[in-house]
Amino acid sequence: MSDAYVGGIEAGGTKFVCAVGTGPDDVRAEARFPTTTPDETIGRALAFFREQEARFGPPAAIGIGSFGPLDPNSDSPTFGSITSTPKPHWANADVVGPIRRALGVPVGFDTDVNVAGLGEWRWGAGRGYGTILYLTIGTGVGGGVLVDGRPLHGLLHPEMGHIPLPHDWAADPYKGHCPFHGDCLEGMAAGPAIGERWGRPAVELPPEHPAWELEAHYLARALQGFICTLSPERIILGGGVMEQPQLFPLVRAKVREYLNGYVQSPAILDAIDSYIVPPGLGNRAGVLGAIAQAQMMVA
């Protein structure tokens, strides 16, 4: 993979993060601003890159990791667009086109979780592993799989936050937050679901609150399925919800319990603390992954 000077965009549903550089030790400039309308937000991104071009020269490429759903197929007529998002103004918005036309460089485009996973695979907690799963639990839930540094695609891209889960309605009568599926993983375990279920934002709930035992249950059920279907060599859990330090031990214990000895791997049986881990790049995984994605385009 190239170490070229490039640009990256972490296009989140709440904020955009833009940066230029060559990697974690060479981020020459960075900017963060709210995600408003497509025209205003993409316009601010372009202004940032034009300013950096005047200082450092043109980047070799731009990588974008975006919220979705989106079209990552470069052969598709809607490549580079966000598709059926419930976020106002962004359904069917073209993200790649305006940036490619304005800057005249190659532009990569993928889900925010695939791109963050790429950053972790290259420089963070996934380094040295062939197959990793990156899952983010925050305002939404999304997942990406990297196989030898290549994000998994298919019909479109994985939508791991929208898998169905066993739901004990007597133990948890909450109907779920997802406008599409109700009680899918995102509907039950994302930050808004926690706040809606308990009547307080997740950040205000104390470590001993029963919310966290329930949250660990849903995350562990999801990981049980992902381990059995994808067999990742390392699982990285990021996002604001996972900043609760009590969650990791709860999730690890429940994953081991729910697998019930079926997956006979030392990583799970003997070393689960180093199998299910936080991001090595912290909250910079997304924008650094976008830089890594751009560098793949010019390798």
Rank of each mutant, 00 (worst) to 15 (best):
S2M: 09
A4E: 12
Y5W: 14
G7K: 08
E10N: 00
G12A: 05
V20Y: 07
D25K: 14
R28V: 07
A29N: 13
A29M: 05
R32Q: 12
P38G: 04
D39Q: 14
I42C: 05
A45G: 10
F48V: 10
F49D: 01
Q52G: 04
P59H: 10
I62Y: 08
G63K: 05
G65H: 00
G65D: 01
S66C: 08
P69F: 03
P72V: 09
P72H: 07
S74G: 00
D75F: 03
D75L: 04
D75V: 00
P77D: 01
T78A: 03
G80P: 14
I82A: 04
W90M: 02
V96T: 12
V105M: 10
G108Q: 06
F109T: 04
W121Q: 10
W121G: 02
G124H: 11
G126N: 02
R127T: 10
G142Q: 06
G143I: 06
G144M: 00
L152W: 01
G154E: 09
L156I: 13
P158I: 06
G161P: 07
P166L: 01
H167Q: 11
G176A: 06
G176F: 01
H181C: 10
G182Y: 05
D183E: 11
L185S: 06
E186Q: 11
G187I: 12
M188K: 14
M188P: 13
A189G: 06
P192M: 08
G199D: 02
H209F: 08
P210N: 11
P210D: 04
P210T: 04
W212I: 09
A220W: 08
T229E: 01
L230S: 02
L230F: 11
P232W: 12
E233I: 09
I235H: 09
I235E: 09
G238Y: 01
G238N: 07
G240A: 11
V241H: 10
V241Y: 13
M242L: 14
L250T: 09
L250G: 11
V255A: 07
L259I: 15
G261R: 11
V263I: 15
I268W: 03
I268A: 06
I268R: 07
Y275T: 04
I276T: 01
V277M: 04
P278F: 00
G280D: 06
A290R: 13
Q295I: 07
A299R: 15
